[in-house]
Each structure stands twice: as structure tokens, then as C-alpha cells.
Design a protein around this nucleic acid. Structure first.
Lengths: 198, 198
DNA sequence: CAGCGAGGTTAGCGGTCGTTAACCTGAAGG
DNA sequence: CCTTCAGGTTAACGACCGCTAACCTCGCTG
């Protein structure tokens, strides 16, 4: 399942661009810096992307798409299983994996959306909305007492909780990936449970 | 207690700058736009601030200071009261008030910190660290089972949860400020409780 | 009422940034 | 061996942006 072949230059560029955008903001990074980060310089990037905007667009569309696709897959896998609580656990697990493994992307995801061209922004927002609605449905199955607007607020808040990984210290001080994932999972479930006991 | 006198021009500028920085990022906003937002144009701002950086610095230092001061006040007020759980509730309430009333500032607070001069950034980080440590101590009194690193992670995660207010829809679709505050409060307590039951 | 400082204005400078143009190179293929 | 083309290079252009300079105009105040 894991990629073993070497990353293409295009993928290198996207990865470094994501890191730099997350660190200093889209407008705070020059194309020369992105080029330097992959060993080429400045305008060489234009052999791979039509412009700086296109890199950000591909990153954000990719993130939103991956999150949505992963969530749908998890929902389908658990289709026979009728326990909504297990499905919610699976969704949480998937989001945590993403938040822990791709911190720069998680950072970009809710920070640089407004820097996109209209059409790209609409696409990303649509993917995000579908992702949220998928969560809302599952959450409401687990906690039927929640109204839809309340469930949606709760989902956004739990996203805030899970996406706090970039603030959690530079991987050295952390109690290990497994323990952090478990902590976040427990807290997310606790937050939903508290929301559901209106 | 509430301010009734008209805001000074300086305060107007800070408020509009905060809104614009939050919307489009520090580098995405020009001084001409900030000026236009308060009815003067461009370089007129330099009668009130030595530069664009200084506006951001004052905003971020102000936020961090306010949060820390408020938390210390709440801690002092509850000094006689020995119930740590009540103190934690007070801290949560204060943070929620801030997150709901000053969304642009909350957004800036964890987004544009790296755009500051070294000295300002160190100051802000110091204030933030003291705020976090204050929370960590209170949380560990309520949930003694938590180790210090785990408690710190939990605090950061709950900040992520509470700071999700900018994603909660544009005030029209919300179930009202009181209900939202109550929901966030419940979820924060639920998240801490889940973290504490390791 | 003269003078002056607070708080504006517009013009413009210097630097940076995204992008394009023109050119180079080495490997693959007929 | 010649051609081609992917993937680079450097130079430079045009736009924008933060900031300064120079100037203006009130409302105070001695």
C-alpha cells in the first residue's frame, strides 16, 4: 500500500510548498524559496506548474478530496456494521491520522482558503461541506438528541480540537504518536458525548 | 464597566486592521486598504503607528496580555474558593467570551505570530506560555491522574476546540450566542474529563 | 491674531515579487 | 549523428507595496 518509488519532482515541489506556506503564509513565501527548497531555482517551477496559485490550489483540493474520499471509504467499509458508534470512531481515527501525519496540510486547509481563485475556492468549499455533512449524519445517529445545527457546530469544534496538532510541540516533547492519537480520540469522543447530553 | 465614549482613531485602525489581517492575512492586506477602512488614505496611518508591523505587534501583544490578565484575575477571585472545578469553569467561560466576541483576534492569535519582529514574538510567546501553564495547573488539580505533558496537550487541544468559533457560521445560522457558549463549555469539560480518565 | 502642532493629503522612491523571454544542456530515439 | 524535448538556467519587465518627503489645513492657545 505504501509508496516505495521515488517521489516525482512535482511531488517534491508540492510537499515543500506546503511546508513553506504553512510556516510563513502564502504571500510570505516567494517562488525563489520554493525552488530553492527542491534544489532548482525560481522560474524553473513554471515547467511544472502554471503559477504559484496553482500549487496552493492543487494542495487544498487534494487535502479536501483525500479527507472526503477517506471518510466515504470508512463509511462504506462499515456498511454492514450497524453500530454508528464504531463508524464515528473510524472517522475520528482517519482524521487524526491525517492531522498527525500531514500537519502542514492541516494548517493550510483552514488558513489559506481565501487565497484561491473563485472556482477553486468553490470546489474546495464544496468538498469540505460534504465532509462536514457526512460527519454530522454519523454524529446524529450516535447522539439522536442533537439538532442538526448543534451537531454541525459540534463537528466544527471537534475539528478544531483534532486540528490542534500543529500546536502540540515539535514531536520531541510529545508522549509518542500512539499516545497522542489515543488522547485526541478520547477527547473527541468526550466532547461529542458532552454535546449530546444537552 | 463597558466603554461608552467614542473609540479613538487609533482604536478604529487597530480594529479594522485586525479584521483585514484575519480575512486576508498580514501580507495580503496593504496599508492603503487599512487606511480606506477607517476613512483616511494610506500613509496617514503613519501618524498613529510607526509601521504596518507595529499594528500587528500591538494586536498580538494585546490579545495575549488580555487573555493572561483575565485568567489571573479569575484565579485570584476564586482564591478563597478551594474547588478547582469552579476555577476551571471560570477559565473556560473567559476564553469562550473572548473567542465569541473577538473572532478576528482569535484568528490572528495563532496564525500571524511568525510575522512579528523577534523581540515582539518572544514577548507574545512568553505571555502565551504563561497562559497555558496557568490552565495546566488548574486542569491537573481537577484531574490529578493527568501527567503534565498530557495535560498540556489536552489544554492546547481544548484551545483548538474553543477557538473554532470563526468556523461556526456567520452569526445568522447560529443558535444564539448563549446556546453556542453553553455548547462549547460543555464540550470543553467533556474533552477534559475524557482526557483525565486515561 | 500669530504661531504651532495634530492629523491629514499626494507624489514618488526603492525594493520585492510573480511571471515571461531567451537561451542552454544532456539524454533518448530514429 | 542529428534532432528533439524535458527540464533547467539567467536577465529583465511590470506591478505592487511599504514608507518617506513635502505640503496643506485646521483648532488651540499664549
Amino acid at each position: 500500500m505504501a509508496r516505495t518509488d521515488a517521489p516525482t519532482r512535482r511531488e517534491q515541489i508540492l510537499k515543500e510548498a506546503a511546508r513553506l506556506f504553512a510556516e510563513r503564509g502564502f504571500h510570505g513565501v516567494g517562488v525563489d524559496e520554493i525552488g530553492a527548497a527542491v534544489g532548482i531555482s525560481g522560474p524553473g517551477l513554471y515547467r511544472h506548474f502554471p503559477g504559484k496559485d496553482a500549487m496552493l490550489a492543487e494542495l487544498l483540493v487534494g487535502i479536501s478530496g483525500q479527507l472526503l474520499t477517506g471518510a466515504r471509504r470508512r463509511l462504506a467499509e462499515a456498511d454492514g456494521d450497524a453500530r454508528p458508534s464504531a463508524v464515528l470512531d473510524s472517522l475520528i481515527e482517519g482524521h487524526i491520522d491525517f492531522a498527525l501525519d500531514d500537519r502542514p496540510l492541516i494548517t493550510l486547509h483552514d488558513r489559506e482558503l481565501d487565497r484561491l481563485r473563485d472556482s477553486d475556492r468553490k470546489l474546495v468549499r464544496q468538498l469540505q461541506r460534504q465532509y462536514v455533512e457526512l460527519w454530522v449524519e454519523v454524529v446524529r445517529e450516535v447522539y439522536p438528541a442533537l439538532t442538526e445545527p448543534t451537531a454541525r457546530s459540534a463537528v466544527h469544534s471537534v475539528f478544531g480540537l483534532l486540528n490542534s496538532t500543529p500546536h502540540l510541540g515539535r514531536a520531541g516533547t510529545l508522549p509518542g504518536r500512539g499516545a497522542t492519537a489515543a488522547l485526541l480520540h478520547r477527547m473527541a469522543r468526550g466532547a461529542f458525548a458532552a454535546a449530546g447530553s444537552a
